[in-house]
Each structure stands twice: as structure tokens, then as C-alpha cells.
């Protein structure tokens, strides 16, 4: 506890960086996954390669990715861009399937009705299909958020500072307080992401709570 109170500033700074490194890729990954998921749903031939391909991305060992990316992107090894790109890739890996499934779960008669009323594809996607897929996509996003918070900490091994640095620091010194603090802070951050996603989802889906109330 003494260690924690005397290092409050450090922990706070690492937490903010961690939130940035895990959170921004969540948004970027969602933006990339939306069109890919739509493609997978729209063209049946595209579904297997996209789902399997992006799924495989998730199996890439994160440490290897952090080490290899600077070579591919021509960035410095400590550049946070490496982490942002890697985390975006992991988010995409998790979300393409979610988006495709979310779009696929829309009732057939709703899709038919939209067509029959004269929706063109883009407007139908934005006005009907995506809003209806929000609950499914949101569930996937919650998983990705937790996964990102956890994977980002690995980047401490290559020296990119965030909450994971508390683990390497504690490990090097065989000193537990920073490790415990790091674990707790990661938990708090994951919980925070979760709450934000749940609240946003609730705001976007009032209809899911409207039940027979006549």
C-alpha cells in the first residue's frame, strides 16, 4: 500500500497510456471489421476466407508481432504505433466474425421488408442492418476490450511503457507491490471499458428493453 500511494502519479500515467494503447485500436479495429464483416455476409464466397483468415490473425503470438512489426512498418521498436497496429489487428481478428454474424442474424422478413420498401444497399446497411446488429457487435466488442487490455501489457517486454511495465519492474526486483498494482489496475481498466461499451449499447438499443407493456 505504501508503494502504491507513493507511486500514484506513475500508476496513473501508465494507466492512461494503457487505456490509449488498448482503447484506440478497439475503435480502429471496429472500423476495419465493419466493411470486412459486411463483405463476408454479402458475398458467400468471401465468408470462409475472411472468417478463417482474420481468425488466424488472433493466433499470432503477440510478442512476435511486437518484435516483427517495426521491421514491416519501418518504425522504431519503441514507437507506440507498433502496439496500436498490433492491437488493431487483434481487434479485427475478433470482430470480423462478430460483425458478419450480427448482420446475418437479422430476421429474413425484416430484410425483405426493407428491400420491398425501396431501400438501396448502403442505406439499408446503415439504417436497418447495422442498428439491429448492435447487440451482437457490442458483445464481441466487450470480449475484444478485455483481450486488448490484457495483450497490451505484453508490450512491456519490448519496452513500451504501460501498466505491463509494473510487471516487468516487479519481476526484475522480485518485488510484489507493483505486480499486484498492475493486475488490479488492468482489472479496473477492463471493467471501465466494459461499462462504457454497455452504457453506449443501452443508449443505442432502447428497443431491446421495450417488452410487451400494454
Amino acid at each position: 500500500m505504501d508503494w502504491f500511494t507513493s507511486h500514484l502519479d506513475d500508476v496513473w500515467r501508465l494507466l492512461v497510456v494503457h487505456a490509449y494503447l488498448a482503447g484506440l485500436p478497439l475503435l480502429l479495429g471496429l472500423l476495419v471489421a465493419l466493411p470486412l464483416g459486411w463483405l463476408a455476409r454479402r458475398f458467400s464466397w468471401a465468408y470462409p476466407p475472411l472468417i478463417i483468415g482474420t481468425g488466424l490473425l488472433y493466433t499470432l503470438p503477440s510478442l512476435a508481432v511486437f518484435i516483427l512489426l517495426p521491421g514491416i512498418l519501418h518504425t522504431r521498436i519503441l514507437d507506440p504505433v507498433n502496439v496500436l497496429v498490433a492491437m488493431t489487428v487483434y481487434t479485427v481478428a475478433l470482430l470480423v466474425r462478430t460483425v458478419a454474424d450480427g448482420l446475418g442474424a437479422i430476421p429474413e422478413d425484416v430484410r425483405l421488408a426493407a428491400n420491398a420498401m425501396g431501400y438501396r444497399p448502403v442505406r439499408r446497411l446503415l439504417g436497418v442492418e447495422l442498428p439491429l446488429a448492435v447487440p451482437v457487435i457490442s458483445a464481441g466488442l466487450r470480449v475484444a476490450a478485455v483481450s486488448n487490455v490484457s495483450i497490451v501489457s505484453v508490450a512491456a517486454i519490448i519496452g513500451v511503457e504501460q501498466l505491463g511495465s509494473l510487471f516487468t519492474d516487479g519481476f526484475n526486483r522480485a518485488f510484489f507491490p507493483p505486480i499486484v498494482t498492475g493486475i488490479l489496475a488492468c482489472g479496473v481498466l477492463a471493467l471501465l471499458f466494459d461499462v462504457v461499451i454497455v452504457v453506449l449499447t443501452r443508449l443505442m438499443t432502447p428497443w431491446t428493453r421495450a417488452r410487451a407493456a400494454s
Partner: peptide, 28 residues
């Protein structure tokens, strides 16, 4: 799409948009 906007269509299970209010459904 133009053709369909000029033709009303009613299907068996109504096919209403679950995420829109009754008013918004009708105003589609």
C-alpha cells in the same frame, strides 16, 4: 428501388423494423 417506393408491400409477419418506433416504421 424507385419502383418499390411506389408500391406498398405487406408481408405475413408484418416484417416491421424492431429497432424503430411504430411512428418511425410507418414513416419509412
Amino acid at each position: 428501388a424507385e419502383l418499390r417506393r411506389g408500391i406498398g408491400y405487406v408481408i405475413q409477419h408484418a416484417g416491421l423494423f424492431p429497432h424503430r418506433t411504430i411512428l418511425a416504421n410507418i414513416a419509412t
